[in-house]
Design a protein around this nucleic acid. Structure first.
Lengths: 150, 150
DNA sequence: CGCAAATTGTTAGTATAGCATACAATCTGA
DNA sequence: TCAGATTGTATGCTATACTAACAATTTGCG
């Protein structure tokens, strides 16, 4: 007769760790991250890099600090990501006219093309992720996740 | 009159990025990770390190490969984490009797004490996280996250 | 049984990401 | 006008994740 949770798992599981919500978020994030990386292996872009390209495309001339604020990165981290994108000629910096402290960010032509490809890859990635859920569940999941990160 | 999603955000949001489920998982993970780090600043333990201590305590003599399998890390990554725990005298390696290739992992006395402290900190961290949800919602969230990482 | 293949641990190297600190340039407000 | 805040930049440290290669050991096939 089974008498502990770990034996119910056949002793291949994570035991009481499985009761920790944060642990499940971490595992789910890891699974999504790995699939994302596979999907984007050809493009050679990471989640962060795509997010930054996407934001800069939606908001031409956006400042670095503002990019970081919206996707929850500090200035130093934002720098390294934009440095890489600039080194690969996907993005360029311009001095802001309105505020000399700021850099106005823009995509290059290559950046626009890369983002277009990235959005296709994201569609495939999202299908993989959403295939587990009904539309209602997706909505509920996003709403609950938003409560966490908002 | 608002006419686009980004304007509903008052132009401070993430626009169409907000429709990407994977993006919300990443943001939520980041928020949880940051709160975890704050909660554990005194103890100086990371999520991974606590998970490994926890597993080794639940399963004395567990092999490194098995730890990695259960919390989704490859052998090399598992090595670096256990190296750190061993350097801090929280964990020790022994040759396995049954399989000479394996290391049997055990907590030291200091490791047992650290894990006990960690479990208290996790309780506080989990309260912070769960305070957003009803019990039913927590159950539904964990169930949906499990569908992703299983 | 004996040997090839698989498993486990280890090491080394690379890349991404996050954070702290310090500094310079610029802007803001009292 | 000038002190303080903001923004970008540079540097350094830490944690994580992956690959590739290698050694020791075990497993299983012929």
């Amino acid at each position: 007769m089974a008498d502990t949770a770990s034996q119910v798992d056949g002793d291949t599981g994570i035991g009481a760790l499985g009761d920790i919500v944060g642990f499940h978020i971490r595992l789910a994030h890891g699974a999504v991250y790995r699939h994302f990386t596979e999907t984007f292996a050809d493009l050679g872009l990471t989640q962060k890099q795509v997010s930054v390209l996407w934001l800069a495309d939606d908001h031409p001339g956006i400042a670095q600090i503002e990019v970081g604020r919206r996707i929850r990165m500090d200035r130093a981290t934002t720098m390294t990501i934009i440095n890489r994108l600039q080194d690969r000629d996907l993005m360029r910096r311009e001095r802001s006219d309105s505020d000399g402290r700021k850099q106005a960010l823009h995509l290059t032509a290559a950046g626009v093309a890369a983002l277009a490809q990235a959005k296709n890859a994201i569609a495939a990635h999202e299908s993989w992720l959403k295939s587990r859920f009904t539309d209602d569940e997706v909505e509920k999941l996003v709403e609950m996740l938003t409560r966490i990160h908002e």
